[in-house]
Simulated scan of single mutants.
Amino acid sequence: MQKIPFAALPNVAKFAIALVPFILWVMFAEFVIDRQGWDEFLPFYRYGELCPWDLGVLLVSGLIWWGAERRARVN
């Protein structure tokens, strides 16, 4: 079985791969941060709304996706 380079994947698969860390963050925020009351200790965290923490996770996953895409095109 051969490895499929990231650049050869369809865009839908690339988008799904980039979305997984954000979904994991949302689940962690819902099941741990919100239910345990940790939101009191996170500055700028908003319960049930888009907040800078969410944008940070989106930014990091976007940068990882961009790096993987760039690395695949170079190779």
Rank of each mutant, 00 (worst) to 15 (best):
A18M: 15
V60S: 07
G67K: 06
K3G: 12
L58N: 03
K3N: 09
P5K: 05
F44M: 04
A8D: 14
N75C: 09
I17F: 15
P43S: 10
L58W: 07
W25G: 01
W25R: 07
D54V: 04
P52H: 10
K3M: 06
L42S: 01
I64C: 10
V20E: 00
S61V: 09
L55A: 01
Q36P: 00
N11Y: 09
I4T: 07
K14R: 14
K14P: 03
Y47M: 15
K3W: 01
P5M: 00
D39K: 10
W65S: 08
I23Q: 06
K14V: 01
E49Y: 09
F22G: 08
C51G: 14
P10R: 15
I17L: 15
A72V: 03
V57L: 02
L24D: 04
E30T: 14
R35Q: 14
L9S: 10
W53S: 07
R71W: 14
F28T: 08
I64D: 02
A7N: 05
M1Q: 01
P52I: 14
V32G: 04
W66A: 13
K14N: 02
E49K: 15
F28L: 13
G62V: 06
R70I: 00
W53K: 02
A72D: 09
G37R: 07
A16R: 09
F44A: 05
L55H: 00
V12C: 05
V26S: 13
E49T: 12
A13Y: 00
Y47W: 15
F22I: 13
A18K: 12
A68D: 08
P52F: 12
W65M: 10
P21G: 03
P43H: 08
F15E: 00
L42F: 11
A68N: 06
V32L: 08
